[in-house]
């Protein structure tokens, strides 16, 4: 197991708000809160899972960390130093340390550039090695992601490769700089199950062999359970539950996590038996922006308490945090 409490990445109170454009006249657009005061620590050598549905803000979180978008407030620290708003040389240095693997391998490789061009690009950008050492490094990296023999792939173009092979190329591109921290944003959602398992195992090996700290963004609790040491469940920009993966999935405390687990199709068993039943059949009508974000759909909520204030994350057990008034009350009692 990894060493505890040595944070590689610290996210402190980060918020991201998108301003939507209003109608043609005036700027009466609504603001959409993608992330609402998120705080997280990611420890050295772990794979941290960020689980949520579409629109939960999980992708935004990844994009903020790699600096593809700017935070509205809060700070993100890598190895203790601020990485928000880096420019110039400092930014370039940061780019060597943090890499990202994107969701759609059909879109994330430039169709006009060969596999060698794509994988060696980070080396060229950071002026590492000369032509021949670069070529060796590219070969080695391709081999390590299971594209072998690498010479078969070097001068191919993406359209000749299958989805799984393309995603391996994308992983090779992210890995070639030997980064400290890699974010993968749903890297297998476009791939078949048997190919996904290949990709999962490559990511696991990256951690086990090279000790790369990772953040794995996914909608699938099952994938998170398989891959991650710790997970955070995010719903509409708010963290609902954070804890060790097995603990959160086997023993979920937040009604939302429970609802997610209830909804996962199980192999051939009676579906009517919901284990938790924490999801309302019909949403509550509530005033927006007050109370818990899950309150409108929560079957176990207290009308008076949950509808008024937003609960914060509270520690429940060893490293298991839950944002829910019901558990707070239970814990206090």
């Amino acid at each position: 197991m990894h060493k505890r409490n040595e944070s590689v990445l610290e996210i402190r109170d980060v918020s991201k708000i998108y301003k939507t454009k209003g109608a043609f006249f005036g700027s009466s657009g609504k603001d959409v809160t993608a992330l609402n005061r998120i705080s997280l620590d990611i420890f050295k050598g772990e794979i941290f899972g960020l689980v949520g549905e579409s629109g939960s803000g999980k992708t935004t979180a990844g994009r903020l960390i790699v600096g593809l978008e700017d935070v509205n407030s809060g700070e993100i620290l890598l190895d203790g130093s601020e990485i928000v708003g880096l420019r110039g040389r400092a930014q370039k240095k940061f780019r060597r340390k943090v890499q990202m693997i994107f969701q759609d391998p059909y879109q994330s490789l430039n169709p006009q550039r060969s596999i060698y061009d794509t994988v060696s690009e980070p080396l060229k950008i950071h002026r590492i090695g000369d032509a021949s050492t670069r070529k060796d490094l590219v070969r080695e990296t391709l081999q390590s992601v299971g594209l072998s023999p690498p010479d078969d792939f070097l001068f191919k173009y993406p359209h000749r490769l299958s989805g799984g092979q393309r995603q391996r190329v994308a992983i090779a591109r992210a890995m070639i700089l030997n980064p400290e921290f890699v974010i993968s944003d749903e890297p297998t959602s476009m791939l078949d199950a048997s190919i996904s398992a290949q990709i999962f195992n490559i990511l696991l090996e990256m951690r086990n062999r090279l000790g790369v700290t990772q953040m794995f963004i996914t909608h699938s609790l099952a994938a998170a359970r398989y891959l991650c040491d710790r997970v955070a469940v995010i719903y509409r920009g708010n963290l609902m539950e954070v804890g060790p993966a097995e603990e959160v999935i086997r023993n979920p405390k937040h009604p939302y996590t429970q609802a997610l687990l209830d909804a996962v199709p199980k192999f051939g068993h009676d579906r009517d038996a919901k284990r938790y039943g924490s999801l309302l059949i019909k949403d509550r009508d509530v005033d927006k922006d007050a109370g818990c974000v899950f309150f409108p759909r929560c079957a176990v909520a207290h009308e008076d308490r949950c509808g008024r204030k937003q609960p914060g994350l509270a520690q429940l057990g060893d490293g298991h945090f839950v944002a829910c008034f019901l558990l707070e009350a239970m814990h206090e009692a």
Binding site: V66, G67, L68, Q91, K92, R95, R96, V98, Q99, M100, F102, Q103, D104, Q107, S108, L109, N110, E121, P122, I125, H126, A170, R173, L177
Partner: peptide, 11 residues
């Protein structure tokens, strides 16, 4: 995304 990937690589 391939443009974003290049950005993340530091291009």
């Amino acid at each position: 995304p391939f443009i974003e990937a290049a950005k993340v690589a530091g291009a």
